[in-house]
Amino acid sequence: MTDQPLVRAFRLVALVPRNIVVALLHVYRAVISPLYGDVCRYYPSCSAYGLTSVQQHGVVRGGWLTVRRLARCHPWAAGGVDDPPAREHSPYRLTRFGFIVLDRKA
Protein backbone atom coordinates (compact mmCIF):
# COMPACT_ATOMS: atom_id res chain seq x y z
CA MET A 1 0.00 0.00 0.00
CA THR A 2 1.04 3.50 -0.55
CA ASP A 3 1.30 6.34 1.89
CA GLN A 4 0.55 9.11 -0.55
CA PRO A 5 -2.25 11.12 1.07
CA LEU A 6 -4.09 11.80 -2.17
CA VAL A 7 -4.20 8.16 -3.13
CA ARG A 8 -5.30 7.29 0.37
CA ALA A 9 -8.07 9.85 0.28
CA PHE A 10 -9.24 8.56 -3.07
CA ARG A 11 -9.30 4.99 -1.83
CA LEU A 12 -11.22 6.04 1.25
CA VAL A 13 -13.87 7.74 -0.89
CA ALA A 14 -14.05 4.63 -3.05
CA LEU A 15 -15.04 2.70 0.07
CA VAL A 16 -18.04 4.94 0.80
CA PRO A 17 -20.63 3.06 -1.28
CA ARG A 18 -19.83 -0.29 0.25
CA ASN A 19 -19.96 1.15 3.74
CA ILE A 20 -23.34 2.68 3.00
CA VAL A 21 -24.59 -0.74 1.86
CA VAL A 22 -23.07 -2.32 4.97
CA ALA A 23 -24.96 0.18 7.13
CA LEU A 24 -28.21 -0.57 5.27
CA LEU A 25 -27.68 -4.29 5.73
CA HIS A 26 -27.06 -3.74 9.43
CA VAL A 27 -30.36 -1.90 9.71
CA TYR A 28 -32.13 -4.64 7.76
CA ARG A 29 -30.63 -7.34 9.96
CA ALA A 30 -31.50 -5.50 13.15
CA VAL A 31 -34.98 -4.29 12.31
CA ILE A 32 -36.62 -6.23 9.48
CA SER A 33 -34.98 -9.64 9.71
CA PRO A 34 -36.27 -10.36 13.23
CA LEU A 35 -39.82 -9.80 12.02
CA TYR A 36 -39.57 -13.03 10.10
CA GLY A 37 -37.34 -15.13 12.32
CA ASP A 38 -35.03 -17.74 10.84
CA VAL A 39 -36.05 -18.54 7.31
CA CYS A 40 -32.89 -19.04 5.30
CA ARG A 41 -32.04 -22.58 4.22
CA TYR A 42 -28.33 -21.85 4.20
CA TYR A 43 -25.62 -21.02 6.64
CA PRO A 44 -24.70 -18.17 6.73
CA SER A 45 -28.13 -16.71 6.10
CA CYS A 46 -28.72 -14.70 2.93
CA SER A 47 -28.35 -11.36 4.69
CA ALA A 48 -25.15 -12.46 6.45
CA TYR A 49 -23.87 -13.72 3.10
CA GLY A 50 -24.72 -10.39 1.54
CA LEU A 51 -23.00 -8.50 4.32
CA THR A 52 -19.79 -10.50 4.04
CA SER A 53 -19.73 -10.40 0.26
CA VAL A 54 -20.21 -6.65 0.15
CA GLN A 55 -17.56 -6.18 2.81
CA GLN A 56 -15.13 -8.38 0.95
CA HIS A 57 -15.89 -7.69 -2.69
CA GLY A 58 -17.63 -4.32 -2.79
CA VAL A 59 -21.09 -3.30 -3.92
CA VAL A 60 -20.96 -4.52 -7.51
CA ARG A 61 -19.41 -7.97 -7.16
CA GLY A 62 -20.80 -8.48 -3.63
CA GLY A 63 -24.22 -7.39 -4.81
CA TRP A 64 -24.11 -9.80 -7.72
CA LEU A 65 -23.01 -12.65 -5.44
CA THR A 66 -25.90 -11.82 -3.12
CA VAL A 67 -28.46 -11.77 -5.93
CA ARG A 68 -27.25 -15.20 -7.01
CA ARG A 69 -27.46 -16.50 -3.47
CA LEU A 70 -31.01 -15.16 -3.07
CA ALA A 71 -31.95 -16.95 -6.27
CA ARG A 72 -30.55 -20.14 -4.76
CA CYS A 73 -32.56 -19.77 -1.56
CA HIS A 74 -35.89 -21.22 -2.68
CA PRO A 75 -38.05 -23.85 -1.00
CA TRP A 76 -36.76 -26.66 -3.19
CA ALA A 77 -33.11 -25.94 -2.61
CA ALA A 78 -31.12 -28.39 -0.54
CA GLY A 79 -29.61 -25.65 1.60
CA GLY A 80 -26.53 -26.32 3.67
CA VAL A 81 -23.35 -24.43 4.34
CA ASP A 82 -22.62 -21.89 1.64
CA ASP A 83 -19.96 -19.29 2.35
CA PRO A 84 -19.24 -16.36 0.05
CA PRO A 85 -16.00 -16.75 -1.88
CA ALA A 86 -13.15 -15.60 0.32
CA ARG A 87 -10.94 -12.77 -0.79
CA GLU A 88 -7.32 -13.28 0.00
CA HIS A 89 -5.01 -10.38 0.79
CA SER A 90 -7.72 -7.82 1.22
CA PRO A 91 -6.12 -4.37 1.45
CA TYR A 92 -8.82 -3.32 3.88
CA ARG A 93 -9.57 -3.79 7.51
CA LEU A 94 -12.88 -4.61 9.14
CA THR A 95 -13.88 -2.45 12.10
CA ARG A 96 -15.67 -3.79 15.12
CA PHE A 97 -18.98 -2.72 13.64
CA GLY A 98 -18.36 -4.34 10.29
CA PHE A 99 -17.36 -1.27 8.32
CA ILE A 100 -14.49 -1.32 5.87
CA VAL A 101 -11.52 1.00 6.34
CA LEU A 102 -8.03 1.25 4.91
CA ASP A 103 -5.46 -0.80 6.71
CA ARG A 104 -3.45 1.46 8.96
CA LYS A 105 -0.42 -0.74 8.89
CA ALA A 106 -0.03 -0.47 5.17
Partner: peptide, 24 residues
Protein backbone atom coordinates in the same frame (compact mmCIF):
# COMPACT_ATOMS: atom_id res chain seq x y z
CA UNK B 1 -23.11 -25.71 15.64
CA UNK B 2 -25.13 -23.91 12.96
CA UNK B 3 -22.77 -25.20 10.31
CA UNK B 4 -23.01 -28.78 11.49
CA UNK B 5 -26.78 -28.54 11.75
CA UNK B 6 -27.06 -27.20 8.21
CA UNK B 7 -24.80 -29.95 6.93
CA UNK B 8 -26.98 -32.50 8.63
CA UNK B 9 -30.09 -31.10 6.97
CA UNK B 10 -28.40 -31.20 3.63
CA UNK B 11 -27.17 -34.74 4.12
CA UNK B 12 -30.69 -35.93 4.79
CA UNK B 13 -32.31 -33.77 2.15
CA UNK B 14 -34.57 -32.07 4.62
CA UNK B 15 -34.67 -28.52 5.87
CA UNK B 16 -37.21 -27.11 8.31
CA UNK B 17 -36.65 -23.55 7.13
CA UNK B 18 -38.88 -22.03 4.52
CA UNK B 19 -36.12 -20.28 2.53
CA UNK B 20 -35.92 -16.58 1.71
CA UNK B 21 -38.24 -16.85 -1.26
CA UNK B 22 -41.55 -16.12 0.49
CA UNK B 23 -40.03 -13.01 1.99
CA UNK B 24 -38.60 -11.95 -1.33
Amino acid sequence: MSRETMNLYKKHGTNPLSSCFPLL
